[in-house]
Write a protein that binds this DNA or RNA. Structure first.
Lengths: 196, 196, 196, 196
DNA sequence: CATGAATGAGTTTTCATTCAT
DNA sequence: GATGAATGAAAACTCATTCAT
């Protein structure tokens, strides 16, 4: 058992190293030696733990998505313990999203990279699709608690997630003086809640 | 005189070739020979017309943005000739955006690539920033004609553009069965107009 | 006739341009476009006036050697008009050599380049050999006027010319603080004259 | 431990290969593949052992100079064991120089190349300057043992080294029929010794 | 498991040369 | 004569991958 754990630890160490690298350079400009250096392991080892460079990428993307799914589920468990009503829950959800996901600049940068990879690579795209579907579904269910129209809830969910991703993009591409990211996020979310 | 025109024509021919290539592969995986092949010119010529590979990219991005700015201005001129009231104008604007920009899949794919490049390259980022600023400003001015609060109009503009970019992303990443892109676009835009 | 003169003028203009370029970069790192730019002519023209890049080099080296041969002959004509005795003549010769040839830094730099080219290119080597032979012969004849041993005179000539070339090299490679080039030149030449 | 030695051995193998190549072509015309072929290693390896082509050159020049410094020191140790008087020592020194350095044609050819590189490259020039300074200093000290005037000794040293370098040049550029290199060397050196 | 030397395909770039206008 | 577009060979360099130790 510890063997497998060590093995997984080392792999995660390498995936974390890639995560670090992606703050500096896009994946295509990141060499295996770059990743090995960041992980402080010999570059030859990367070929022991991963089939090839693309395999590192695929596992990395799964790792990132899993990580944030876990983060979300942990938050959900914690939040459900508290006695929020439906509306408050949605507000809490947006708060969590804004602070931990959308305005998390390191994460947003990585996601812009993942979008691009997914746009050209159907395997990655499938993984990402699944994540977005789950995300939209989750939000949809929450909105359903405060509205009567499931179809409308789903559409608003999709639109809201699109909006959040657009904001994540802007947080990386635009300078803070263009507009106040936080204000636009919360202001618009308030309108969305009201419109339901 | 024709010399200069020929020169520009050839450059545009090469930039169009890159545009084509970017439907298949990201820029980093597109070789200069790939572009030359698509443009049906000798690869050495690319170094005659452009300083280096990055120069092709920079000029390409300027070219794409310029192209769509021209497209927009042409539409604006045409639309102003017709006697729309303010509200109708905004609706027409959204129609144009949806059909020509956001749901133009070739364009969206290219823009996902440009986002990624901009995330890592500050020169490209500056160019893109300027384009987004102008876009948000333009929409802001239109919204100002139907509302009394310029600050609110600007925030809604920013949010709307973020939403459109998120939808462009989804049109590439998600499969059409996830939700109806067009319906979500128009439905949400209707809400935005109502909320003003 | 003027045609031919124009033609020669243009060629010389190009050769002078190469001379300029060689102050910056060795010949192998100087492109035809570099030379064309320095000569302020279109690069295609260089292929009209010269067979190829090596032809420019060959003609350039002939041109440089001819130029300094002319310079020397002009000096000789001028000096012979004055009534110097044999010993004074030799001193005058050394003065001329030191100031116009050996310590002419632009020339020395070019000559280091020519040596290197000659070391690998037998055509150029032949041209250079001939020049050195003539130079040694000329000095030999002068020394013969003050000594009785022609064989010894020839050997001292050869050694002297070798010494001058070594000093030309040092004037480019060494910094002035290493030793006083001029003092070493004149001091050693005095010894040579005395030793005859 | 053997690892480091192997590594150095391989590097030296490559530097020796360059040494061989420089007998045929100047450095600028020698490709990395040429060097790899001569070293009988894969060309990619050269980029493993050296940062780039210039790095090979720099290390090569240091290697050559070091090699001949070692050669000289070994000779010095050997010669000091024998009981020569000061004058004999200087004669032995000239003998060593003539046979092992100045009239070593492979070495002289390489040095003409190094001169040229140094003329245009200040890094290389610094390395070469240092070597010439040491050489002149060494000779100067030897001459000081048989003369009373240190300043004069230093000037004669500088002149002598210049003369030797000029003779090295001539041994490559001129044909043996021009004059007897060995005779001129020894004859002139005899005069130098007498003149002290 | 770990290391680092070795391989070779592929990439960008430079440039002499040609040639139509 | 002059121009500048076009060609293609060759260069330096990168890097994923393999593999012996």
């Amino acid at each position: 058992m510890p063997r497998i754990k060590d093995h997984e630890d080392k792999k995660n160490q390498i995936l974390e190293a890639l995560n670090q690298c992606l703050q500096e350079k896009p994946f295509d400009q990141t060499s295996i030696k770059d990743i090995a250096r960041a992980a402080d392991v010999n570059h030859g080892l990367l070929h022991y733990y991963f089939k090839n460079k693309e395999d590192i990428l695929t596992q990395y993307i799964k790792y990132v998505i899993d990580h944030y799914k876990t983060l979300f589920n942990d938050w959900l468990t914690a939040i459900e313990a508290q006695n929020f009503n439906e509306k408050e829950l949605i507000e809490e959800f947006f708060d969590f999203m804004n602070s931990r996901i959308t305005l998390n600049k390191k994460l947003s940068k990585v996601f812009i990279e993942i979008w691009e990879i997914a746009a050209y690579n159907s395997n990655i795209r499938s993984i990402l699709q699944q994540a977005y579907r789950e995300w939209i579904d989750t939000l949809s269910e929450m909105l359903n608690t405060v509205t009567k129209d499931p179809a409308a809830a789903r559409q608003v969910s999709a639109a809201t997630v699109a909006f959040l991703e657009g904001m994540a993009l802007f947080s990386i591409i635009l300078t803070p003086d263009t507009f106040d990211f936080n204000q636009v996020l919360t202001g618009f979310q308030k309108k969305i809640i009201e419109s339901l």
